[in-house]
């Protein structure tokens, strides 16, 4: 190991040691919520509200949703202006990443709904990107001030029950639209047969993301769990369930969409 690397290692080690000592010495300030109150608020959003431009107090998840949309808007705009016009026939790494992403959702739509899939592909792409980015977003722990003056980290947009209900019901409506477009009244009947779908999709998503948030809250609440463990719980679990929930919702939506939009075959 050369001299420069040794110096860097020593500096990193010193910083980590100083942070560990600092976390032990410095006492937490602000209102000391119990873990029970924290978890109850994460589920019901009764106490910690954020002011939406002074118009209304909303759940933190809605602010997260706006932030995620803003981030994706800027990212998409930059990609559209600076990257896509320079696309090559033999793709580079970033182009390959974008093409794989679009190709994955497009193929998922074509595979599960071979008869009608153009709109479905675009929808599951948007939903998939939103769920994944929104879930990973909670890792950044962006701080906001609640209406009570406390500081909280922004959660995943879909850890808010309203966001999860929105995406679950919207997916159901998209499936219904596929049924109408493919089979008219028969499609409506087929979709209505799956009446539990919006509830199951909404609460599956809400439950999965909320459980991630609760486990993270639990880990960070106790000082002795905050060393090393967040690397596993906070990052790996979040990434894993971001991928799983993205796949589950998009796959279910495309599967049901394909089922209700499939042309009915007359029995001879």
């Amino acid at each position: 190991m050369d001299k420069d690397k040794k110096i860097i290692m020593i500096v990193i080690f010193a910083v980590v040691l100083a942070l560990i000592i600092g976390t032990v010495i410095v006492k937490a300030t602000g209102d000391n919520e119990s873990i029970g109150e924290l978890m109850r608020d994460a589920v019901l959003h009764e106490t910690n509200k954020i002011s939406l431009f002074g118009l209304k107090d909303v759940n933190p998840g809605l602010i997260s949703a706006f932030t995620v949309t803003g981030i994706l808007f800027v990212f998409s705009l930059i990609v559209r202006i600076f990257v896509i016009p320079k696309f090559k026939m033999v793709p580079g790494r970033f182009q390959l990443l974008l093409e794989s992403l679009v190709g994955f959702f497009d193929n998922l739509a074509k595979l599960n709904s071979p008869h009608r899939n153009k709109f479905l592909g675009a929808y599951i792409f948007a939903a998939g990107v939103y769920i994944f980015t929104g879930t990973v977003f909670e890792l950044f722990g962006i701080q906001v001030i609640t209406t009570r003056g406390a500081s909280i980290a922004l959660p995943a947009p879909l850890a808010d029950i309203n966001g999860a209900v929105m995406i679950g019901c919207l997916s159901y409506l998209i499936i219904l639209s596929g049924g109408i477009a493919g089979n008219k009244l028969k499609g409506v009947v087929r979709t209505l047969k799956e009446f539990s779908l919006p509830v199951s999709m909404s609460f599956r998503l809400f439950g999965a993301l909320l459980s991630g948030a609760l486990v993270t809250e639990l880990v960070y609440h106790y000082i002795h769990l905050s060393y090393g463990l967040p690397v596993l719980v906070g990052i790996l679990f979040t990434l894993l369930h971001a991928l799983i929930q993205t796949y589950v919702l998009t796959m279910l939506t495309s599967l049901f969409y394909g089922e209700v939009s499939e042309p009915s075959h007359k029995i001879k």
């Binding site: 809605l62 559209r80 675009a122 948007a126």
Partner: peptide, 24 residues
């Protein structure tokens, strides 16, 4: 808030469709 979430997602859908999905 569900409707605000919906509005947010519709905007996001339009952005992603016109800027990313469709051109790619």
């Amino acid at each position: 808030q569900i409707l605000i979430h919906l509005l947010n997602f519709v905007i996001l859908f339009a952005v992603l469709y016109f800027f990313l999905y469709d051109p790619v």
